[in-house]
Design a protein around this nucleic acid. Sequence first.
DNA 1: CAATAGGCGACTAAATTAGTCGTATATATT
DNA 2: AATATATACGACTAATTTAGTCGCCTATTG
Lengths: 132, 132
Amino acid sequence: MNKLNKKVEYALMALKHFSEGDDTTVSAKDIAEATHSPAEVTARVLQTLSSHGILKAEYGLHGGYRLAKDLSKVSVYELMNIVDGSTDLAKCLSDKECDLLKNCTIVTPVENLNKKVQDFYKSISIEEVFNV
Amino acid sequence: MNKLNKKVEYALMALKHFSEGDDTTVSAKDIAEATHSPAEVTARVLQTLSSHGILKAEYGLHGGYRLAKDLSKVSVYELMNIVDGSTDLAKCLSDKECDLLKNCTIVTPVENLNKKVQDFYKSISIEEVFNV
DNA sequence: CAATAGGCGACTAAATTAGTCGTATATATT
DNA sequence: AATATATACGACTAATTTAGTCGCCTATTG
Ligand code: SF4
Ligand code: SF4
């Protein structure tokens, strides 16, 4: 429970790479090599980050990605949502699919805790995570 | 990612039940019925809570459990650790088993974020979660 | 000593997460 | 225009984690 998944970790690795390099485009393959992560998965993560405006993709012979957004302006919450789809603390908060939902005694407490957690993640920027 | 697991949810349900009732002992079976959760799993969760001093178990004919600790003194962090074993944000922080560890570029950032998250969870009491 | 209730280990099933493969599309260079 | 390089996407398989079950043992009350 509570573990970051690999996609989020690969995203962090990639963003760290970009934030540390100069502003040249870097291909998905290069990122995968630099971060020792599986090329296909990394490529997919970069595409997602690009489609959400965190990175900018460039096609062609010397194409690749570059940072499109100041990482001090991107929250951990935003990154998790982009890469993983949801940051909700329980199933019922997004899908409404939990079997217990109609009898559940803790929906309100969970909603309450969920809000706290998400506000917390919104308050932390990626830059802040990198610069200890 | 980031979802509470069922054991933690069952624990919350049980604790809510105890915190709302009077101070009589309640059997695992009764808790399971009241919370619509699987009896065996619930029993196990209650045993764990008991062995960590959150509940007090009583054997015998009219045995069961009762609250042993003020829920305003029990943090979400503590509960998660007791019921789930760990609240660490990444494998390497507890097991040191991640394949990427020797090449990982984000160990420090992840440690950094992990500390923030755990401090946050330490700052919230169960009582606070229940009383919105 | 029977009935009731907690305690524990090992197992199976279900769901989620991680990783792979194949193919299509876009564009800078030649 | 051809080609090499790189992004984009869908569908699939494998691995891991989570959830739930079963059977048997131990303690205490009445
Ligand atoms: S809070 Fe209740 S309804 Fe929502 S997912 Fe958890 S158990 Fe299901
Ligand atoms: S932070 Fe790096 S080493 Fe730690 S678990 Fe994530 S990938 Fe593995």
